[in-house]
Design a protein around this nucleic acid. Structure first.
Lengths: 184, 184
DNA sequence: GCTAGAATTCAAGGTTTTCTGAAAACTGAA
DNA sequence: TTCAGTTTTCAGAAAACCTTGAATTCTAGC
């Protein structure tokens, strides 16, 4: 590995725990990201100095995240791993999996708690707080879902707009008001 | 603790590691979230069955996230902890801290790697991949920054719009084109 | 269907992270 | 300034997590 690649891989390893994956999974993914052609498990283990079984476990984890794709070479029985095509696809895959792991269980828990008929009067404040949280989380969750439907171009445009989107929203309100005759 | 609060606290504890905080920090925060009035360290330790020193460490961590605020009661030397006012404020604080911990170190690393003059020809592919990643991360990062400037109302409106925002973007393009006379 | 090579599983050992109680440091009120 | 009550620190114990090699299962190509 060249020095630049080495520091990239090391960084992904160190950041792993902050990102909710472990060191090795981070390193394996970093290596695949910057490799021009797919690698097999032995290549990966050799490059990172880790055991064959650890490579296997890490690749399984990356498959769960849907961050790697498997290819085969004719006349070669080993499996070769590569990453998704564009960084945009990667971004979407990470967002989807994080939502599944980090947000959805909480939404489910909150939904159940809020529907619980045994809730007592003394819990009034706690339930109100939980409801607020549920509502914002659900809104944000659905919003991310919708954003993923946008084309990369639209997404780029929206992001470049930044907070100027506010002007556009005001404009929209005026237009709607004028068209429906419901203004002031 | 009532059963509903207990399951809420337990859930935050279990999700802690997925969210990049530890079990105890998650539980302490959950408890503060649903408590109508601020709690002192002893209250927290008793409610959660953890040591006084562990409470102290967890509160320090929550302070680093800027998720708790400290109050005092007249004639009481103990410190009382409560949470931020609205879920929107909480959301913003979490986003800011996560960006600081999870995104910024990577942007810094990529920036340095991309500027490194010792980059060799053999690293061409790796550097291209890293540049792509850097560009999307920077764009998304700045976008979040801008979004935080929006009022809660605008944010709500934008989120409710969902992918229909695309129509608004098309409308804007047409208007700009018409005004500047640069259309087809 | 065999089989050699490849992938996976798993128990044991190693490492990192978290938690605790005891001790030290701090602080508000007298 | 003193001091009792409070918070913080820290070394060691406990828990959680990760890694490994050996054994097992799987499978592509014959």
């Amino acid at each position: 590995m060249s020095p630049v690649v080495e520091s990239f891989v090391a960084h992904f390893g160190e950041m792993g725990s902050r990102w909710g994956i472990n060191r090795t999974v981070g390193q394996v993914y970093a290596l695949l990201l910057v490799s021009e052609s797919p690698l097999n498990a032995e290549d990966i283990g050799d490059a990172l100095g880790i055991s064959r079984s650890n490579v296997s476990i890490s690749l399984k984890e990356l498959e769960a995240w849907q961050l790697v794709k498997l290819t085969r070479k004719p006349g070669d029985r080993r499996e070769y791993y590569g990453t998704l095509g564009s960084v945009w696809d990667i971004f979407k895959a990470v967002a989807a999996e994080r939502r599944r792991r980090e947000v959805e269980p909480t939404l489910t828990m909150l939904r159940q708690a809020l529907l619980d008929p045994s809730a007592a009067e003394s819990e009034r404040y706690a339930l109100a707080r939980m409801r607020e949280m549920y509502e914002l989380a659900e809104l944000a969750n659905n919003w991310f879902d919708e954003l993923q439907r946008l084309s990369p171009e639209s997404m780029l445009q929206l992001m470049s707009l930044g907070s100027k989107v506010q002007k556009l929203l005001v404009l929209k309100d005026r237009t709607v008001a004028a068209l429906t005759g419901t203004d002031g």
